[in-house]
Amino acid sequence: MTEEDVRRVAITIYAKKCAEAEEVLMSPLVFDMHDIQLLRKYGICGVLSGTLPTAAQQNVFLSVPLRLMLEDVLWLHQNNLADVKIIRQGGDEIIAGITPERGAKLAKLVEDRLTKSFDYQTKFKKDQHIAKLKKIGIINDETSAEELQRLDKSNNNDQLIESSLFIDIADNSSILKDDSIALNSLSCDDIRNLLFKQYERSEKMQTYFLYKALRDQGYVLSPGGRFGGKFIAYPGDPLRFHSHLTIQEAIDYRSEPIDLISMISGARLGTTVKKLWVIGGVEEETGSTHFFSVEWAGFG
């Protein structure tokens, strides 16, 4: 990895190798909120997937980690914008491998973080309470600390503040930062080769070239399974635009037959949800990418 690569790598992505096939990666995940903000600036939104097992939520209420598509990771690596850490162990192995000393250190970090969070919340709420009392004229700038303490005691303000404190859950994991768990020694080229092998293995490498061509044109892509495609494409941030295209997996459009039923059903579905049904492929001789859109016009 060159000095420029080190300077540009900012986003940490965690991935786990599949137990059955060492060359297959499970869904890459991003835990850090700062990294997620950077991804959004680069046009990668991902899918939030974090929730509590006993409190299932709708998609709009999910939290970290952010799940990325493999195409997102490939694109980030080609632009030297991310560092993928391969997790060697399963969850049970990770927990079992934590030494008592390491466990005590982690517990102390959590305790210190919670104490700092509670102190910040308490001060913020007290400042808000004082500002409200000043606004309604109960106290002023000349009110003494003893008088404020008496008012708080008479109104049980301290107890009310304590009951309103919440536990701030960390967005990233201190355990995953341990070098014995995450493999940090692979260079960007090594990880890129591993990911490309996975694509060659599944014969879908050309689908990535479709993804890359659309990203180069400024589209933001997300998984398109719910609209019958490989990707859905937005002309900008999904918070500002509806998706316009439903992209299918790449085909050899010069020689591979297109199933007429699939084309008709895809075009009708696309028209129903106000999206173009798009197929495409890569011309081997020139390496250029071509797209073809199909729209259902209706009859009668």
Score class of each variant (00 low, 15 high):
residue 86 I to T: 09
residue 4 E to R: 12
residue 171 D to F: 07
residue 252 D to I: 03
residue 34 H to F: 06
residue 186 L to A: 07
residue 164 S to N: 08
residue 180 S to R: 14
residue 123 K to F: 01
residue 71 E to R: 04
residue 213 A to G: 05
residue 189 D to R: 10
residue 261 I to E: 11
residue 115 T to D: 11
residue 131 A to K: 14
residue 185 S to H: 06
residue 285 E to Y: 07
residue 251 I to G: 03
residue 198 Q to R: 02
residue 261 I to N: 13
residue 68 L to E: 08
residue 146 E to Q: 13
residue 213 A to D: 13
residue 178 D to P: 00
residue 37 Q to W: 09
residue 275 K to S: 03
residue 94 I to S: 01
residue 209 F to C: 05
residue 150 R to D: 10
residue 145 A to V: 15
residue 295 E to N: 09
residue 2 T to V: 08
residue 64 V to Y: 12
residue 168 D to N: 10
residue 269 L to S: 01
residue 188 C to F: 11
residue 84 V to D: 08
residue 42 Y to S: 04
residue 199 Y to S: 06
residue 133 L to W: 10
residue 67 R to C: 10
residue 103 G to A: 14
residue 30 V to R: 03
residue 226 R to M: 10
residue 272 T to G: 09
residue 222 S to T: 01
residue 120 Y to A: 15
residue 141 D to P: 04
residue 80 N to Q: 07
residue 259 D to Y: 01
residue 67 R to N: 09
residue 8 R to L: 14
residue 287 G to P: 02
residue 75 W to E: 09
residue 67 R to D: 05
residue 76 L to P: 06
residue 85 K to G: 02
residue 82 A to M: 03
residue 93 E to W: 07
residue 98 I to T: 08
residue 21 A to T: 06
residue 177 K to L: 12
residue 175 I to W: 05
residue 251 I to T: 07
residue 190 D to E: 15
residue 293 S to H: 08
residue 152 D to K: 11
residue 282 V to R: 01
residue 153 K to Y: 07
residue 262 S to M: 08
residue 251 I to P: 00
residue 248 Q to W: 00
residue 98 I to H: 04
residue 49 S to W: 07
residue 284 E to P: 07
residue 46 G to K: 04
residue 141 D to F: 00
residue 295 E to H: 12
residue 53 P to S: 12
residue 10 A to W: 00
residue 285 E to L: 07
residue 298 G to K: 00
residue 25 L to P: 01
residue 50 G to D: 02
residue 232 I to R: 01
residue 223 P to L: 01
residue 277 W to F: 14
residue 188 C to K: 15
residue 28 P to G: 03
residue 76 L to Q: 04
residue 73 V to F: 05
residue 213 A to N: 12
residue 183 L to Q: 12
residue 81 L to P: 06
residue 255 S to F: 14
residue 231 F to Y: 14
